[in-house]
Amino acid sequence: MASTTVEPRRPSTAPAQRRGVVGWFDPRGRRLGGLAFIVNRLSGLGLVLYLYMHLMILSLLVQGPGAWDTFVDIALSPPVLVFDVVLLVGMLIHGLNGIRVGLVGLGLVASRQKALFIAAMVISAFVAFVGALRIFGGE
């Protein structure tokens, strides 16, 4: 049988259809790992914003007890306490899922990633619930 030659390829000039940055956060069709990716990314970005907000608010301490204590009284109002609960949830999700990312991401328990994510979310929910009770209970 005569052999044939493979012809050189011509590169495609057509663009690919990409979901882009919006696609990172689109939960449609996602399974557990994809949802973990979304919540980790959102909680991380939210915590970065909180970090800088926290540093700015701390500058009120330079202005003395009047400014700081006034802020604290505002911070104890129910709408701000809701924010505290959201912050707690964000820290728990990011921290506990981060344990999964660290362990799985270094190849240590690659086959257990789903179980680790579920465990992280269950623990987060429980601690957030207890934390919310304490936050709104005035403690």
């Binding site: 003395g64 007890p65 700081w68 604290v72 104890l76 403690e139």
Partner: peptide
Amino acid sequence: QHFIVPTGLRYYEDVI
């Protein structure tokens, strides 16, 4: 922040 001082580290004097 929340468990050392009974009401948490809230007001100016406690924080300082």
